[in-house]
């Protein structure tokens, strides 16, 4: 192997085979994109799309200036929104805790039967947005705060349940072993060996979800589940764009404040 001419003249980053596969992959993605684009826009009326800048300018004109006199009317709905988020979070967390214990492979009483059920509850709750839960609940139990709270709770079960059961599966098994060795019962093992270990995760997850829930509960009113979203819906229906601006700004402030609170709380916990 003394002759340098033995080596290839060109240096390649990847082998030809992987490069070929990558090109095929990218081409396939482009083809898929074009196909989807055409399928999606079969019924798009391009005249409206072309008209959009004019519409945008029109809406912008109507939105400004904001109708500040509307603000006092929004305070009660804002209070409702915060309640929906808070009570909904509490409800969701209360249900999520046992679900998480059933779903964690190291605490589930029956891996064959109960664990799949718990996992299915988590997936179902996670796949369906709070707004869809609210849509259903308004149809079932009627419009109002209760539907909003239950919707938030149902959506939170999956989120909290998933993160919590992952936290349970990651605990230090030695501490559990030590508690078991003292002759403790099952409930005592959970109480002493597991709960102290997952406490920080539990509070962190709950506060995080509360923050998300504040955000989500602002719009639940669009389908009639109470809170500030009802006012938004009403203002949109009457084309009162000046009020819409006020509502959106208020939502924005609420979200910023709740994010700040949740960051502070989580910082305090960890």
């Amino acid at each position: 192997m003394s002759e340098i001419s033995h080596y290839s003249q060109l240096w390649h980053h990847r082998t030809p085979r992987t490069r070929l596969l990558m090109w095929i992959g990218w081409l396939a993605l482009i083809a898929l994109f074009v196909w989807c684009w055409q399928l999606m826009n079969r019924e798009t009326i391009w005249f409206f799309v072309a008209d959009a800048p004019r519409q945008a300018a029109d809406i912008g004109n109507r939105m400004w200036p904001p109708r500040w006199e509307y603000l006092p009317e929004l305070l009660m709905p804002l209070w409702d929104t915060i309640n929906i988020a808070t009570i909904g979070t509490i409800g969701g967390v209360v249900i999520a805790v046992p679900v998480a214990f059933l779903a964690a492979s190291n605490t589930t009483p029956s891996a064959r039967f109960l664990r799949p059920i718990a996992l299915f509850i988590i997936v179902t709750s996670r796949s369906i947005n709070a707004l869809i839960w609210a849509l259903l609940l308004v149809a079932i139990i009627g419009p109002g705060l209760l539907a909003g709270m239950v919707a938030i709770a149902l959506r939170s079960i999956g989120f909290v349940g998933k993160l919590l059961y992952e936290a349970i599966e990651e605990i230090d098994p030695l501490q559990v072993e030590a508690v078991t060795a003292t002759g403790a019962g099952r409930a005592q093992i959970i109480n002493y060996g597991i709960i102290p270990q997952i406490m920080p995760a539990f509070w962190g997850i709950s506060v995080f979800r509360w923050d998300i829930n504040i955000r989500e509960s602002t719009i639940l009113g669009l389908v009639g589940a109470g809170g500030i979203g009802l006012k938004l819906q009403g203002s949109l229906n009457t084309l009162a764009w000046g009020q819409v601006t006020v509502i959106l700004l208020l939502i924005l402030c609420t979200v910023v404040v709740s994010e700040w609170i949740s960051a502070k709380l989580r910082h305090a916990i960890i």
Partner: peptide, 24 residues
């Protein structure tokens, strides 16, 4: 990030008309 998808959608529907293009 501040505006939720659904609120953005309301505006885009108002501007571009109903249908998946606004959703896109």
């Amino acid at each position: 990030r501040a505006l939720q998808e659904i609120i953005i959608a309301i505006f885009f529907v108002a501007m571009f008309g109903f249908g998946p293009f606004a959703g896109f």
